[in-house]
Design a protein around this nucleic acid. Sequence first.
DNA 1: CGCGCCTTTGAAGGAGCTCAATTTAGGTGG
DNA 2: CCACCTAAATTGAGCTCCTTCAAAGGCGCG
Lengths: 248, 248
Amino acid sequence: MHTPNKSIIPVTLTTLKAACSQCNLRELCLPYGLSASEIEQIESMVGVRRRVKRQQHLYRAGETFEAIYAIRSGFFKTDVLLEDGRDQVTGFQMAGEILGMDGISGEAHTCNAVALEDSEICVIPFAHLERLSREIQALQRHFHQVMSREIVRDHGVMMLLGTMRAEERLATFLLNLSQRFTTRGYSPAEFHLRMTRDEIGSYLGLKLETVSRAFSRFQDEGFISVQQKHIRILDIAGLKKLLNHPPS
Amino acid sequence: MHTPNKSIIPVTLTTLKAACSQCNLRELCLPYGLSASEIEQIESMVGVRRRVKRQQHLYRAGETFEAIYAIRSGFFKTDVLLEDGRDQVTGFQMAGEILGMDGISGEAHTCNAVALEDSEICVIPFAHLERLSREIQALQRHFHQVMSREIVRDHGVMMLLGTMRAEERLATFLLNLSQRFTTRGYSPAEFHLRMTRDEIGSYLGLKLETVSRAFSRFQDEGFISVQQKHIRILDIAGLKKLLNHPPS
DNA sequence: CGCGCCTTTGAAGGAGCTCAATTTAGGTGG
DNA sequence: CCACCTAAATTGAGCTCCTTCAAAGGCGCG
């Protein structure tokens, strides 16, 4: 397979016109039942696409908030920082998911968004989104659902951090990843982790050594096979049995 | 001042017309710079007020989502349940704050909201809110900010649960309460906890004994005085010094 | 006044952390 | 293509903070 033209353009951030109607993530990004003209309006709202290379920031805490972002391809993490240098990964985001909603509440973003692999995102200027969602009811509804889903997801993470043991946290994490890969048409049983043990640990409220030990233990038990970042789930039921078993 | 009619109606849930323009929580609930007619429209959206007695549920996980709620007076907790019976308090809400946004993403609420003292709430039918926020830009903006603020708050809790030690969590909790009471015109230094040690512990990812011990320790150090649920903060600076001191 | 619930306090145990050494993978340049 | 180098991952041993289990004390409410 030959290298496509785009890759010889010597710029980091390629910008190109969005084409939501052609996008294979429509179901994730857009509400159902839009008319052709409405889709056209939404395409005009999605300003440009942008490439973000691995380890580059899409935005940083403190930067002026102007737009939210839809991930077209790739993988991101978001993290928040404390003044003393401690940080916590608040989420991992993949294609079809939305980034940047933390910035709506104020003038500025409150967390960092970093690409964990070369990615492509759609820029959605927030003023445009608000204007359009005043006109298109289905878009308004959809956007509210996306925000609410983020709140519900956060509650799930709080549950995880507040009540689960290390192995249960990691099992939950793996099952969640598997489920999201499935939704996107990838294998539920075999995937590549884009993040380090340290980043997983930060997200799960554990140290990287604990994450590594839990992986090893899952492998010993025959639930998964681990080779660095390559994961194969061998026994979903086994993993699920680790859930719903309270410590006390 | 005589007792108004409403109080002689012999029902648990009193319903009466909302009057946002008279409400002393306007700054918390409503955006700035609305015209009189816009405020009138919003008053008509806020269907009714409702009383919720201590220990009563405002809504339960699984119940059909139809409205969000603004707390007029009182105090609530929200919690999520796992199938195995474990639960986690996801937040404590007081006057001027909004409840129920977890339900927007689906058909049903995903958590329980329970009054921790006799409370009064304003019912905001969600369909009305969406319709009005298509017409009043400032309302739309305000609502988006409220949702986003909830997301940012959740990130803060994740940070707390993921990276902080027990005493730091409790100090953060007390300082947060103090700050919110101040905003509402109450004393920053002296207040009554509406929740049990167990509920605080659930929220902070700790056991009730750990919470109790931390309270005692704070008292020994002279940071606060504790008498059951009555808290007096004696040394804010001392409490703040507990923050920003990483474990490692 | 007595009962139940909440809180406090103590002592022992354990899950996960810290510190440290080793192995492995992936990228770089000769 | 291989040797080198660095970052990431694995594994072990000891320790710590929080939990668990248990008992006693206090407050509020019928």
